[in-house]
Nucleic acid binder design. Sequence first.
DNA 1: AAGGGTGTCATAGGTCACTAGGACAATAGC
DNA 2: GCTATTGTCCTAGTGACCTATGACACCCTT
Lengths: 142, 142
Amino acid sequence: MTPLQPRNANVLAFHIENTSGLTPYLQLVQQITHALRLGHLKVGDRLPTVRDVAAKVAINPNTVLKAYRHLEVQGLLVSRPGRGVFVAKELAGPSAHDQASLRRALLRWLSQAEDAGLDAEGMQALFANTVRQFIQDQAEAS
Amino acid sequence: MTPLQPRNANVLAFHIENTSGLTPYLQLVQQITHALRLGHLKVGDRLPTVRDVAAKVAINPNTVLKAYRHLEVQGLLVSRPGRGVFVAKELAGPSAHDQASLRRALLRWLSQAEDAGLDAEGMQALFANTVRQFIQDQAEAS
DNA sequence: AAGGGTGTCATAGGTCACTAGGACAATAGC
DNA sequence: GCTATTGTCCTAGTGACCTATGACACCCTT
């Protein structure tokens, strides 16, 4: 049986948004990548079964397989036939302390944005736009 | 000739990213929508020519047309054959003052994130994750 | 040895997005 | 009127992605 570590169950809340415009398997890739980057998944952790994910998010098992394979090619996952799919490599991310600090600061900003009347899309728009400006300024400063 | 207002030239810097996973015409839709939401485009402003955009970002004119039509259906744009495509409606966004304030706060946060070693993807991951948490908390608090 | 759970593969079909190339209609300026 | 520019449309073709269904190979437990 070897049930999943309960930790994963909470963190890996797979979800498919049909309105995002992003193709389903790439949505899964992105969610797993984010979990790896934020330290929610550690090397050796086992991911949910292909069939389980497919049933949960209501897509075809082949689509889930495609997402897993995509990450396996990048060396982030390893799939062992008959056993499951496991994390093979973690992504560089902030330390737990820094992450908590950044998250708190971001939550304060979100409250401020909400008070200004922004909805989720507005926040996303402003963030995307500002990040773009930030990156561009960095490049010019070099 | 009625050249474009120089304002648009700087703000509407169309760009197609092949790595984003988002389909090209939706990338244009998103960029225009963001510009509308942030007040970079005003009612009556003229958008770049279908053929101009197609040439600039190296995609087919039909793809640009699809993006424009997508926004026209939503009542955000109006296309006048022989004249061009114009902004028909603006989207609710923060006031100029609030926007400037939010942008400054966000820039500070980005500097902090950069100091913590995050790259653009890491920032994006943390933002997406935190927004999701924020929205969820809002829903539960109702 | 037997069974169940797992990853994997193959086939076939459908939908959607993009491309290429050309042509037409409306508008503005000469 | 003529011409250039603009939005619009059409056809055909290509490719990516997803689905449904079934089957196989591997591993572990019993």
